[in-house]
Amino acid sequence: MKDLIKDIESRFKTSDYIQKLDHLAFITVEKEQAISLVTYLRDYRKYAGLTLLTAVDWLEDGVFQLTYLLNNPTDYTEIGVRVMIDRDNATMESSHHLWENMMTYQRELREMFGIDFPGSPRIEEDFILEGWDNMPPYRRDFDTKKYAEETYFPRPGRESNDPATYMKSKMYPND
């Protein structure tokens, strides 16, 4: 895969290349060139298959990482193309024209992360969360535990003790 990476690096603005496994590499590309790179990989480098598209929320850095994981059905290698997009203005160019299944991923990302892909078919339709009126739940700042506590009710009669605190309260309460 080394040649491929060299080729990509010469054509696109990339960084942070990591060869994770013999058949699996990750590389970051500038947002503007991302779809071009993915298209290039698909059409000219035999990465014809889309394994997945997903997002990672780097809340602390204020960015979403989109990972386009492509596979090459001839030599069975895989390449993960990372794209960092601004978290406050989470919009990404749609690539539904490249793969028939891409629109499903984009719909899910819009619903779960609030990342918009303008022009993607049925992007506005609910995918998993029909009737959801809270923030996109896969964002890091959505607190699942808090949501569960507010939405549901705890089973009454449950109470636990921390061993160290309990021992202190019983054995040396004055200290």
């Binding site: 889309l50 394994t51 028939e100 299944n101």
Partner: peptide, 8 residues
């Protein structure tokens, strides 16, 4: 056969 990659 040509759907294999485009549809996943």
């Amino acid at each position: 056969k040509d759907w294999i990659d485009t549809y996943g």
